[in-house]
Amino acid sequence: MDAADLFKALSDPTRRTILDELQQSDGQTLFEICGRLIMKHGLSSSRQAISQHLAVLEEAGLVRTRREGRYKFHHLDTSPLRSIVDRWPFDKE
């Protein structure tokens, strides 16, 4: 993962909304994520488009997928964000 992947992933409002929803409830199926985006946020993206957004987030390390038996869940991983604060620290006391 390089910095470009991270900033590209964060640059899209739909992808930021996906992160918001995973922050609220971690470990969601693709179906649940789509339902939340459509019903709560009025987004009209197709399931395939959401799937592609998730792939970009996963590429940037912000989302991890976990297979549990026959199900696949998506989890938020905020650890890549540390590189941003390390690069531009906001607390220099």
Binding site: S25, Q28, T29, F31, E32, G35, R36, M39, K40, Y71, F73
Partner: peptide, 14 residues
């Protein structure tokens, strides 16, 4: 696979 979720006009679970 989905806990009860408030989606605005509807609550769902799977």
């Amino acid at each position: 696979t989905q806990e009860p979720t408030d989606l605005g006009p509807v609550v769902t679970a799977v």
